[in-house]
Design a protein around this nucleic acid. Sequence first.
DNA 1: AAGTTGCACAACCGCCGTGTG
DNA 2: CCACACGGCGGTTGTGCAACT
Length: 300
Amino acid sequence: MGRAPCCAKVGLKKGRWSAEEDEILVKYIAANGEGSWRSLPKNAGLLRCGKSCRLRWINYLRSGLKRGNFTKEEEEIIVKLHATLGNRWSLIAGHLPARTDNEIKNYWNSHLSRKLQSFQQNGLDVGGPAVVDLSKLPGGVRRRGGRTSRSTTTTEKNTKNGTTRREKQGMVVVSPPASLAQSEKGHSVVLHADQSQASSACTFDGNTNEGLMDPNEEMVSELLCTSAMDSVLVGPSEETMAGWGSHDGDTGVIGGTTVEELAPSHLDKFLDWDMEGMQAKLWDEAGEMWPWMWDSESRA
DNA sequence: AAGTTGCACAACCGCCGTGTG
DNA sequence: CCACACGGCGGTTGTGCAACT
């Protein structure tokens, strides 16, 4: 059992590509086209693994790639798509043709995730992620090196989506908007994010009108609250949950609709939505959107 | 000026799905 | 149906560099 390594490890060069190697690879592909990555390095005279050649070509050498800083528009697209698709960088990259999945992934890990986390931790009242001017958030200004002081813990703050948050024993305690707390007192609300965050949930206990959430899950749910559109994104049936958990064939079943089916038309539409308005709508229509939450079992 | 620290990013690693014999 | 090769993808790591002490 077990596959043979993609290439013989012995004698192959690793690490950064030299200009000479780049030139060889570009010339070879120009003459012979892409594909046959396994045999490419041998045929081209490169002491590289085929996968390494492919990665170098895909991410840096092929034409049509846009290098340099991400624009504000690109950032917003990434944030919104990530809220929907999770870490499916190749799908996200499909909506930013000049960017590679690796570049987007790196950018997310080094820039955007930190911004959003800072946003959440500081409870900034900036109107929700969809309308956040990312450049104004902590970390928005590129800064390199040096020691950074760790942000102090927050006690209690009101957020623009109507919830109240405070921290207790390492968890984020979230209270729903007063309107929901009063109208739906005695019920529980569980917010589920996309497939990759299926376990992320905020449960508002009907008696205390509070919900406990991991700080990281808070960010997910914040995005979810502002982006949820219908049952496709919110609320698990058993079938849906099974699809989330299984990663069935990389299909990414969400509420019976595959991610591939969602993209691009639904996602393009999604990007145009008034996220803040959707957030308010979500709270207003909580009873309709999550009917399974109001059954007798969930109240036990 | 030198040492320290953390960021940014290129590249690697390993798993998974698909195609093929 | 099975085993294998290959390509693709997402997670992770290594390294260079600049800011800071």
